[in-house]
């Protein structure tokens, strides 16, 4: 019953897709095929990322993370969030387990939010697509504005969550 509840949104979507396939076979089949492709993509990225998150969790001591991304890590914190977000592979949801690990290990919220921001604006593989499809001016505006914006959002988040910090479940 508990498992069923956890999968209820999934089952709802599955039912929707089946209905769609009955009403509009071509669109429905296409949706199933695309969902299948996405699942394959997910399987090529999510399991190794989670293994890396698990390993970092047991091997990297809190002090090390705090030194590089904690409060007062200054420029180092910005650099490492940029680097982590920039080399990122995959959709946004893959950044979430990484971000929870960062919070758990004592990274400053400012850098965690900034890291998610970098992931959504300046991932290397996507950056190359952007440059080739939309040119330098567009890409430069997007990345410079996006990164500045998310840095300030990160600072705001730190203020908002100062009283009641985010608790990460084990």
């Amino acid at each position: 019953m508990k498992t069923l509840k956890k999968y209820r949104i999934f089952l709802l979507l599955l039912t929707g897709l089946i209905l769609l396939t009955l009403l509009a076979p071509t669109t429905g089949k296409n949706a199933f095929r695309l969902a299948g492709n996405s699942i394959m993509d997910m399987l090529s990225l999510l399991p190794p990322v989670l293994v890396l998150v698990g390993l970092l969790d047991v091997w990297v001591p809190k002090e090390v993370m705090m030194k590089y991304m904690g409060n007062g890590s200054g420029f180092r914190g910005i650099f490492f969030s940029l680097l982590l977000g920039f080399v990122a592979a995959g959709p946004l949801y893959i950044s979430f387990p990484v971000a929870t690990l960062l919070i758990k290990k004592g990274a400053a919220l400012r850098y965690v939010v900034f890291f998610i921001g970098v992931w959504t604006t300046a991932k290397l593989p996507v950056f190359i697509y952007e440059l080739t499809s939309f040119g330098y001016e567009f890409t430069a505006i997007h990345i410079i504005f996006g990164l500045t914006f998310y840095y300030f959002v990160g600072m705001a988040f730190e203020k908002i969550f100062a009283e009641k910090p985010i608790a990460i479940e084990e």
Partner: peptide, 19 residues
């Protein structure tokens, strides 16, 4: 823990792209 959500996301991707 995240599999149910991830699977829903995958099906939604399919739906988004098809529609």
């Amino acid at each position: 823990n995240i599999l149910p959500d991830v699977l829903s996301i995958m099906f939604f991707v399919g739906l988004s792209l098809a529609i």
